[in-house]
């Protein structure tokens, strides 16, 4: 006869009582990391490093909060999976969207030449002037290219 297992029993969760001292230590670490990130802000690391440092420190702080304040360190694999799921799917969204943005100029090469209509003087500029533009005026509003992404500047 089939062995009876109780799903509730298997997923049983316990309350975890963590000594307050641990919370205070975690708080201390958070304070230190906050000071670090503020100090790092005025350095120019170059490239994308500023972003990496800022987000790296933020991720560390977030992990501390999740693991200790939110007790995930002591919880079941299922809960950890749920915690991870939110971030994984957010990651998927960012990854695939950015993949499009950074690889875009593969195809949308700007036109080699545009001959303006009879009385349209200004050739297309790379930095378009956008002003209160007479959208009715044919010619002036035709050309409004925009730079493609350049994440690394």
């Amino acid at each position: 006869m089939a062995h009876i297992t109780d799903p509730i029993q298997r997923d049983h969760e316990e309350h975890h009582v963590i000594p307050p001292r641990n919370y205070v230590i975690v708080f201390g670490l958070l304070v230190v990391l906050t000071i670090l990130t503020v100090l790092a802000a005025n350095f120019q690391f170059g490239g994308l490093l500023n972003e990496v440092v800022a987000l790296g420190i933020a991720t560390m702080k977030a992990s501390l909060v999740i693991l200790f304040f939110m007790h995930v360190r002591y919880s079941t694999p299922l809960l950890r999976l749920v915690v991870a799921a939110g971030f994984i799917f957010f990651g998927i969204m960012v990854l695939f969207t950015m993949a499009d943005f950074v690889s875009r100029d593969w195809r949308s090469t700007p036109p080699r030449q545009i001959v303006a209509p009879v009385e349209q003087a200004p050739p297309p500029v790379t930095e378009p002037t956008l002003g209160p533009q007479p959208t009715q005026a044919v010619g002036q509003d035709e050309v409004r290219p925009r730079g493609t992404v350049n994440p690394g500047r």
Binding site: V83, G86, V94, V149, N150, P151
Partner: peptide, 23 residues
Amino acid sequence: LATEVMTFGGFFLAYIVYRALYP
């Protein structure tokens, strides 16, 4: 909370895209 991550995630995505476009 996972749904909240995705909620704020929409904003963060927009932020990342535009930060990459207009640093």
